[in-house]
Write a protein that binds this DNA or RNA. Sequence first.
DNA 1: GCCAACGTTGGC
DNA 2: GCCAACGTTGGC
Length: 152
Amino acid sequence: MSYYLFKSEPDVFNLNDLKAKPNQTTPWDGVRNYQARNIMRAMKVGERGFFYYSNAKPSGIAGVIEVVSLAKPDETAFDPKSEYFDPKSTADNPRWFCVEVKFIHAFPKVISLETLKKIPSLSEMTLLTHSRLSVQVVKEKEWNIIHTLLNV
DNA sequence: GCCAACGTTGGC
DNA sequence: GCCAACGTTGGC
């Protein structure tokens, strides 16, 4: 069982938007980075991840979502009208993939990046060492530490 | 709005 | 396969 972190700009797509979707579920499409794609392809149904707000005030972890389907081809890559269109990705040989994710819960308050940076045991977290990666693996230990912050 | 970090592209 | 040029991400 692995844990993950999914980034989104809340002005573009946030937890309320996810909650409003049919079945509170959406394909995590638009990812155009190979490392992030490979992480999604390794995800299993039932695994959970943090929903992270980037370019936000404040940026930070806003809640939890769950993987509800294995990675499948990202349809937005095939659509010339989509901002995520990629002519190099074809139905025969798709380049980009996405899992479907479901709303689980929103934290009462966003756990800010500033707060996370202050915790020594989180200093190796991918969020802090490879800040640009938009889909990340979170270690179980990190996952648990972050949940204990909710009780403070 | 700036800019550091870093991923991608394409010429050679 | 190298690497310069360029584009994007995301914190501040």
